[in-house]
């Protein structure tokens, strides 16, 4: 708890001893960390390390069973109003894009502003078109998700999350389901977003992106944070044996 108080001053996310179980399986074993406003954090680790589960607890897609998570001064609890407020402030991008296939690209982006923020349709559409232009998809605004490529879909997904003007963006392996030639178009959008000052938590295997963009790299294994450090220290002088093994394996190819 002492740790918690020290970090609350300019922290937008505070996690204190977060635990989670899937039935008997202990997925998160006491995660304690904090993220500053505007920080870009990359979370990496072998599969099954709990990294996806961890960022999904931050907008409560996964419910933590012990410990505390405070997002922008609001503690995540069973209180539904808190969850709704936090979800409007936290955008999320998924590995499988999860665009709504029955809606056009434009409708995907305007849906939440219209229904949750109660924006007028015209206003929502002009904002959405501006966002689609920012991610380079404006000419596909009236197509359906199935008619555009994976990379384009993921950029739409980013625009859709940004449409709610979130303070924090969560990326859950945003490039893992993409064909190799499409990875960069998504990473470029994320780089641009990072430069704009957005707070970003990114689970990814793209170590080049991590080294270039991240303020801090968090390495997780078996449900716990093993090591966290700035990228140059993390890659060039890792302290932990498991981190060294992971880096040598990921950088080999």
């Amino acid at each position: 708890m002492a740790d918690l108080e020290n970090t609350t001053d300019d922290s937008i996310i505070v996690c204190d001893d977060v635990h989670k179980w899937f039935d008997d399986f202990h997925v998160l074993k006491g995660i304690t960390t904090a993220f500053k406003k505007g920080e870009k954090a990359v979370i990496c680790g072998p599969s099954g390390s709990g990294k996806s589960t961890f960022i999904r607890t931050i907008n409560r897609l996964e419910i933590h069973q012990r410990g505390r998570i405070i997002v922008d001064g609001i503690e995540l609890s069973d209180d539904l109003r808190n969850i709704d407020r936090i979800r409007q402030e936290v955008g999320m991008v998924f590995q499988q894009f999860n665009l709504f296939p029955h809606l056009t690209v434009l409708q995907n982006v305007t849906l939440s502003p219209i229904w949750v923020k109660k924006l007028a349709k015209g206003e929502a559409e002009s904002e959405a078109l501006a966002l689609l232009e920012r991610v380079g998809i404006e000419e596909h605004a009236h197509k359906f998700p199935a008619q555009i490529s994976g990379g384009q879909q993921q950029r739409v997904a980013i625009a859709r999350a940004l449409a709610m003007q979130p303070k924090i963006m969560l990326f859950d392996e945003p490039t893992s389901a993409l064909d190799p030639e499409m990875i960069n178009e998504v990473l470029d959008v994320m780089r641009e977003l990072a430069a704009s000052g957005m707070t970003m938590l990114v689970v990814t295997h793209e170590m080049g992106f991590a080294r270039e963009v991240a303020d801090r790299i968090i390495f997780m294994d078996e449900g716990a944070i093993v090591e966290e450090a700035a990228p140059d220290i993390f890659f060039d002088n890792p302290q932990n044996e498991r981190t060294r093994l992971f880096i040598s394996q990921t950088l080999q190819h």
Partner: peptide, 20 residues
């Protein structure tokens, strides 16, 4: 994923069901 995406956008249960 469709439920998750809707929830992540702040849609509550009735809106998620009705719209998505």
């Amino acid at each position: 994923g469709q439920h998750e995406a809707a929830h992540a956008l702040g849609l509550n249960y009735p809106l998620t069901m009705l719209l998505i």
